[in-house]
Amino acid sequence: MEVAHADDVELAHRIAAGDEAAAEEVVRSLGREMFGFARRMLSDSGAAEDAMQETLLAILKGASKFDGRVPLRAWGFGILRHKITDTLRKRGREAVIGDVDPERDAFNAKGAWKHMNFAPWREDEETLQVVRDCMETLPLRQREALELFAVEGKDGVEAAALLGVTPVNLRQILHRGRSAVRKCADAKLGSDED
């Protein structure tokens, strides 16, 4: 088997052997980022803390099973994603992939908008809060894509790897997610106007 991430394998072996410094390195390097991601996904600091703790402990306890086929970080985020999915499922939110373009019926045969009455939004905290509220209504997959893309930066290669999709698929998921959030927020912001 090809080991693509030998440094990570060595780090995992040290953890499996009980190396405290190696364990601390992983906990400190991943903890903050995992907490941030979990909090945005779960909208609950306590639940995010639990998911992060459980994930980090699972990484440390399962280090001997890490085989280096993916980066240790991606492996850890994979565990975290499962924990977040479980938490959301218990809340009644199923992990549904949003595979329909929110604007699929928005254009006429000539490719123009059927309804062109878009009104500018104010760029203030209220608008941002509406946008964030709409993000919470996204299917899990789209929400993960938006959050991971924001964490990983614009090329999205690692975000795609974490989600188990190609970078091209990630871009489509991102686009539909943003589009769905825009549509949701526009409906709320528009309906609030006098």
């Binding site: 908008w113 009455n117 878009f118 500018p120 964030r132 993000m135």
Partner: peptide, 16 residues
Amino acid sequence: PCLVYLEQFRIVHQAC
């Protein structure tokens, strides 16, 4: 209309 749409999309992007 597309200019307004773009600005709304940017705000969504920034919020993420």
